[in-house]
Structure formats: C-alpha cells, structure tokens
Design a protein around this nucleic acid. Sequence first.
DNA 1: GGATTCACG
DNA 2: ACGTACGTGAATCCA
Length: 894
Amino acid sequence: MEKFMLIDGNSIIYRAFFAMQQPMTTSSGMHTNAVYGFTNMLLRLLEEEKPTHVMVAFDAGKITFRHSNYQDYKGGRQKTPPELSEQFPLLKDLLTAFGISHYQLEGYEADDIIGTLSLHAEQKGCEVIVISGDKDMLQLASEHVKIGLTRKGVSDIEAYGPAEVQERYGLTPAQIIDLKGLMGDASDNIPGIPGVGEKTALKLLHQYGTVEEVLEHTSELKGKMKEKIETHADDARMSKELATIFREVPFEATWDSMKYEGIQAATAVSALQKLEFKSILQRLDLSSAAPDGVLDHLDLDEAAGQQAEELAVTVIGEEEIAQLEAALPQIDVVHIESRGDNPHHASLVGIVLSAPDQYFFLTPETLKSEAAAPIRSWLADESIPKDGHDLHRADLVLFWDDIPFAGARFDIQIAAYLLDPTDSGQSLSVLAGRSGLPQLPEDETVFGKGARYKVPEADVLSLHLARKTATIRQLVPLQREQLEQNEMTSLFVDLEMPLSRILADMEKQGVAVNADELRALGKEFEGQINKLVTQIYELAGTAFNLNSPKQLGEILFERLGLPVDKKTKTGYSTSADVLEKLAPYHEVVQLILNYRQLAKLQSTYVEGLLKEIHPKSGKVHTYFRQTITATGRLSSQFPNLQNIPIRLEEGRKLRKVFVPSEQGWSMLAADYSQIELRVLAHISDDPRLKDAFLHDMDIHTKTAMDVFGVDREQVDSNMRRSAKAVNFGIVYGISDYGLSQNLDITRKEAAEFIAQYFDVFQGVRRYMDDIVTEAKKNGYVKTMLERRRYLPEIRSSNFNLRSFAERTAMNTPIQGTAADIIKLAMVHMDKALKDRKLNSRMLLQVHDELVFEVPADEMEEMKTLVPQVMKEALQLAVPLKADVSYGSNWYEAK
DNA sequence: GGATTCACG
DNA sequence: ACGTACGTGAATCCA
C-alpha cells in the first residue's frame, strides 16, 4: 500500500520558528532554529508514518490568485521576520540533501498544492497524511486523507479524519470553509462576520449547515447577531471563498519524483554538518546506512525518560481492585485529575492513589464501577488522612460524580499559597523544578491546551499522573518543614486546611436562585435599556456601539466636542468618574451613565447568573478560591457571588432572587462593622482610634471631629464624607494623590488632610512608618495569624514600584488580618453548627459578611449565635462588632 | 489576549 | 520629579 505524506512547509517552519524560544545560530551567525525544529519533526514523522512518497509544499511569490479577488488578503499578517526568511533556502537545501521533494508554484499557496496532490493521490487509491498547523486543512479530510495538525509547537501531531472533525466541531470536513466564512481568520486577514467567533459560528452551522443557508435564514435570528450577519453577508460569502482550498493546481512533478526510499546518508551528513546540527547527526545512526548509502531505518529513540526516575505504576482495572484494596492501608497520597476550569462542571480524567514507592492508576470508569466500592469508601472515610494537590477541587469534581471525598490532610497547593501567596498559581511542574525534584512535564504539554485538550493514551496518562503524584509525595515534607520555619504550621493546620473543607461544603450546598424573578428583572432592564439607547442615538445624532469605549469617546469628544479630562493608553477615557464631570455639559452624558449601569446589571448579573444555574440542582454553586489573593482573602468564581450589587437600589434588587432553598426558611446575613479600622486600631495601638471603638462611636464622624477639631454637632455631611475618604485612604496605604482623586480636591488640600489626620492619630502614623521599615528589613509583612506577603519591590530604586510596595506593606497586614478573622469565624461557626446539631447552613462569605439559610425554628438561636461567634473569633484590643439581619431573601437580610 | 469598564469588600 | 489609592471577577471590544 502506498502512503503519501504531504507537508505544509510554510506552516510548519513558522510554527517551528515561534516554538523555539532561544535563537540558534551556526558559528558563522546563520539562524537555524526553525530548520532545526522542522528537521526534528520530519525525522520523527518519517519514522512513525513510514510513507512511500513525501512532498513538502511551499507558498510561492507574494501575489496569489486570492489577492486578485481580495486585496487585503493576508494584509493583517506581520511581516516575516528576517531571521526566519533566511531559513527557507536552508530548509530547501536540506530537503534536497535528504532526498525529499519539495515544490512551489507561482500564484498558489502550499494549501492549494497539497489540496491538489491529496486529491490525485486519493483518486489512485493511496493513503494520504497531510501535516500542517493550519486548521483550514481539515476541509481536505476524507476516508483516505488524514490531516495531522501540530499541537503545542511542532512536538506533537494530532490526526484528524472525518470522524475526528465531526467529534471536534460537529461538522463535516466540507463545512470547515463555512466555519471560516462565518468566523474569519485573523492570521490570514479573512474578515468573516465581526463579532462571530467559533462558538457562534458552530451554533449557526449546526442549525443551517452552510454559510448560504445561514444567510438565507437571517429572518429567524434576532438582536445584534442578526444585524451583524445581515450587514456582513458579503464578507461571509467572500471569506468562505478565500478559505476554500483550490484543488486544480496545474502540476508538473511526477509521482516517481516524490518517492521516498530513505534518507541519502552521504549528502544528508554534509548538509547537517553545514548546519551544525550535532545532536541530529548523533541521533541518526549513520553506521546503519545500507551499502547504497541510504538510511532506511531511523533510530530516533530520544533521550527522554532518563531524567525522571522510572515509577512503578500499576494500572488498576476491575480485576485488579483486590490488589489495590490490599494496599489501601499504606496509601496516603491521592491525585485526582480533572478537566475544565469550573470544578462544578469538570470531568474526571484519572485517579492515582499512592503508597510509598507505589502508584495505582484508575480510570474514572473503574473508580465508578461496582467492584471499586471499597476504594470509594476509602476515599469517603474522613478518618483516613490524604495528601494531595488542590483537594478542594478534587472534592467538588468527585461530588458531582456522586463519589464522596473526605480526609484531606496536607494540600500542597494551599501550603504553596501560604509560603508565597503572590506566587501560588504555579504548576506542580514549576514547584518540582524549584525544589530540585525530578522534572515533570507541564500539563499543557501532555494534554494540550484549550480546544486542543486531549486525554492521551492510558500508558502516557497513567505515567504522567503518577509522576505528578510522586512530586506531591516529595513536596509534602519539604513544605511541612518550611511552614514550620515560618511559624505558619498553625495557620495551615488549624485554619486553612479546615476551611478548605468548609468552603467545599458551602459550594456543594449552593444558593437557590429564583430564576423566574430574575428573568422578570431582566425584562424590566431590557425595556429601560432600549429606551435609553434610542434617546442616546437621537441626542448623539447617530447610532453607534454604546459598548465600545472607543466609539463612545469619538462621539463625546469629537462629534459633541466635550472637554477631554483623562486619557487612557488607547484613547479617551470614558469611565464613570469622567462622565460624571461631563454631565453638566450635555444631557446625553447622564443617559449614557444610566445605560452603562443597566447594561452591566443585564449582562453580568441577569444573563450571567442565569447561565450559572446548575442543571442538576437548580442553584448557583460558586467556587471559592483559597489560593488566589495576595492578602489572604477568598475569591469567588463561576459566578462571582462576592460582587452582587448593593450600593445602588436598581442593582440591589438583584439580591431578591437569592432565596432559601427550603420552604419556610430564611436568609440570614451578618457583617462585621468597620473590621479593617478596628484591626488598624489594634495593630497600631493608637489611643484615639482605640478609644473611638471602645465607645462604639461612628468612626467617620469621630475622625471628622478629631481632624477638624470640632464638636459632634459641627460635623456636616461634607466633613464626614472627607473623613470617611481619609479613613479608606489610611487603610489602603495613603497618598495625597490618591485622596485628591477620590475627593476631587487638589493634591495640596489632600496632603493637608493627611497631615492633620496623622497629627491626631500619631499611633497610626508610627505604624505606617514602622511597617514600611519592617518590610524593607525583612522583605515581607505579616498578618496577626502569621500570614506572609513578600514585597521584593520595596527595595526598588524605581519610585513607582517602591511606592506601590510601601502602600501594600501598609494595607496587607490590615486587609489580611481582617481576612484571618473572618476565616477563623467560619471555622468556629462550622463547629458550632455541628456541636449544636443545627440544620442552618453557611452559604456565602463576602469578605466581611457571612450569609446563611436558616430554618424558622433555629432563627432565634442563630440571630445571637452568628454575631457572637464572629465577635469572638479573635481577641483584639478593641471589640469586634457584627450586625445581623434576616428576611425571606438576601435583599431583605439587610 | 490585552485593555477598559464596573460590580463588590 | 516621579504619577497610584488596597484586594478581587466578568463582560465587552478590538487588534
């Protein structure tokens, strides 16, 4: 059987060039990195695919037939860097030396040559494999034509036949050009329809099949999409044409000239020597050359696998479960691999359980099988301690697969976060490298990223996951020691690890959302938005994209000639504070502000929240992240439930849709009052600040009295507002400039305020000075519970960097200690609910607030218990205060 | 994918 | 003189 390998020379050499970060030159200074990458891939493909015929196709000339139809074709493309262009002749020479044919034809692209040849070859019953990095090629896939697309540079090839195209896109190969027609291709400057990306394009094609059919049925579409598609119908048709590979190139080379019979050793060696490719020369076992000087057998066994120590991985199928069961008593490290950012929607990929020197791999199917029941009970057993990486996530992923998980003891992701919260997004691979452990490939290398993610074969997968597990196993004692040295063991063991489990419980519980009411709110907003849009277009004298700051800026500052106050990197600033100043000049400005507000509520909260209602529970399940923030706070994703509107009434209404999940229950919310300023009073030991809280005074009024030297009765609303801004500024690490911006006063006035403040609150001034000094000395600052944040830039000679670090040094102990306190309260609250056998559930944390759902018969108890636990979370030199409220929904609990 | 804007504490 | 308030996440535009 003949097998024809067609390589898209341009595409591959480009990818090879950009995949190799380091420049690589011969001793004479000739760049060779792209040729090197290409050659490595070529040799591997020759060995793996064993083709009988090979051809490398290149683009020729600058003008192709496509340009005569569309002048801008490839217009957006960056000019080829000279370091790359000079490598084309080198590559062609090398191919010739190897005895591999290459071809180009004036007026055509490599795509067209490959399209034509693959068609010819297929018609004569030959198997074809096309190698390219360009997804356009997928249109050529057929029963006998496979498309090998490069993944991750050029190191990996993924083969697509029609079935794989179907699986990946839900399209036939012929529909790939329709896909391009709709979504375009920025790299070729194919326009497509603006605003239509892959997702929208696929949705349309799944419904209508082709570009033409989509255009035929625009009447069935609605909204902006309809508008866009109708106005850009011609672009779509033209884009489809541009994306279509031409398969009738007049071709002269003969079938025999493309025959591949092994590498011509003699010429290959001298060419490789010229390029100084020593490692390739070594790898090609030249002694195996046949008498005729042809290398028909390439020995390319790479040196890989030598660095990483060989692990004993046992793949556990249903038959081997007994073997695993016997080892369970020794197992203390688990790794749960999952796919997807949102753990509530992620899928299990594989599981490794490990005892010292032993690694057992299970597929998700095996873990879910009846035979694996003992393994599942082991996972669920809270009394069996388990170490791992991101066990919080593992818990959630398993939960949605109905596999309970408990007993997390040492989570190395949390440990890494505590050891350096600003450097915690690090992969296991990076952590391994830094600790001098054996190399671990990045997940991206093994799985591919984004749309190219693909679970590899079982042997590759099990080995990779076992290596990750081995890394975890080795990191645990190292981190334990470092935590101990930093006196953070208690923070880790008594606070963060218990909290991790509590957060997972809260997330699994979820918050019930009244979807009908949310949709009704959406209707209201929609009506108001439509009205505003009409009015704004009328006042502006033209329609434009209100969501585009660029277009809005042009309207306001050029068409309407309003004064420019602030600029951004890219143009005029149109942010709310700028617009507010412009409001008196033109009535359209206020309408725009109103539009912005409503559009935000609609897109982020109404539409965004509706999308997040989980199909299995009908609730929203946020994902609290414990290892993100630099200060120790939590963050919340998918959806973010820590930024639900409250400040303005229109938005605040959204809180009405957050309701108890059971009949007759209520929502209860309790929030700390002025926790950060109380923490500051404690840390700074400032007598006046402490005194204010000891007497539970209105802190902003009291600040105004002290700073302005007046009686309570003389404090007007403006003075209180200024004092409040100063208090905020103090917490943030004050600067006159920042305060002046916030209060819209001059810098000088702001500086005077600050000076007066520090005159009165001298303890605060001393704290600010001391903490900056301490940070400079140690390189880090700490919270009351020994949480650290490193501030290397505090020693910078760059004013900006240093100032930023100084403000951070002032703010982090305050914000971070407040975070410590509410985390403590959560741990204590969880225990109190259990001890008292209450059914009330903790649902949310919003930095200084905890939200619960509470059955009617527990309300009395909870009303006092929650604020009490919060107040007593940590003993300070001033009392903590927590206000509690409740109602039939989150809005009413105010 | 970066920049802008805006929701929260 | 320098030119930013501290900490987040999501939607949208646009190159």
